[in-house]
Amino acid sequence: MTEQDPKAAAEAPKEAAAPAEKPARHGPPIVIAEEVLNERGEQTAAQLASTLGTLVLDSAGREDNPWVRVDAKELHAAAKKCRDGEIGMDMLNLMLAVDWVDRIQMIYVLYSTTNNRKVILKADLPAESPAIDSLTDLWEAATWYERETHDLFGVDFPGNSDMSPLLLYEGFEGHPGLKSYPLNDYEEW
């Protein structure tokens, strides 16, 4: 992408969005970390498993942060159980999206101020038109997180009434959090 060729720059995101074959990777082999929970984490994981029951698709964790993967359609129900159940997750600490190119993963970090424990909920969304139920009725903190995720990743949140751009501005094209969005070369503004 050069300065003299603005058309190529405009077309670049479309090209990058198309599934391209990854070139063979050079460098040292990739090591995958072992996920081991400590004693405290095991306790939380057991509590979480009993709270969610059959909703859990997959679970593991690291240190004292256990995570469970649930179906995207069941996420609202799972979150509600976590909040109202004995585990008492009363704070939505963090919410983020990770772009794995073939899918978008939503990650919710919940925290309990009464029990002082953290759990992580995950849900996989399709890369094409991702959508997941809004958690604004459970935690007010979700409003801005969801708007931000909508800005940067294009995830829709049915149930959140205000989806206007938060960090970006009206008229911004594309979702810059996605891996397919190109980073700048020189541009006149």
Binding site: P176, Y181, Y186, W189
Partner: peptide
């Protein structure tokens, strides 16, 4: 932030 998508150079 030269490479960033949202920063004026």
């Amino acid at each position: 932030y030269y490479k960033s998508y949202s920063v004026v150079m």
